[in-house]
Amino acid sequence: MEKERKPKNIFVQGPISPEKIAQSIANHATKTDIGGHSIFLGQIRADEKPEGKVLAIAYTAYEDMALEKAFEIREEIFAKYPLTCMHIYHSLGEIKVGEICLFVFTSSKHRKAAMQACDELVERIKTELPIWGKEILDAGAPVWKVNT
């Protein structure tokens, strides 16, 4: 029977802990048809800007729209690649330098599907989800982040 997929909450208040990531990996031990996992972790970088050094990024989102869009992307990626599992987590609120703000996790029988799907998901998350980051600097006013 085809499992019906529904929009899942991708948002986490605050940073994504390394323990959560480890637990998420451990949760797949029982899925023995998986042969490869691909994981992307986005970490807050201490960027040096003309205005100052980045200390943290404060994330906000249009949550309802982001969840609908994430679901749409999820369905498209599942249709395109033979994946066993897919997980997306994005932080909201203030995330400090060195902390994890994005966790994308794909699993498949063979490595290539997991790796390509993970890469495509990260690109689509960054360009298509209505999420905004405001960089908190060590000097002066915060600056709205621009994705490159």
Binding site: I125, P130, W144, V146
Partner: peptide, 9 residues
């Protein structure tokens, strides 16, 4: 909704 350029991730 009014949406400035996205900058998630």
């Amino acid at each position: 909704a009014l949406l400035p350029p996205f900058s998630g991730g």
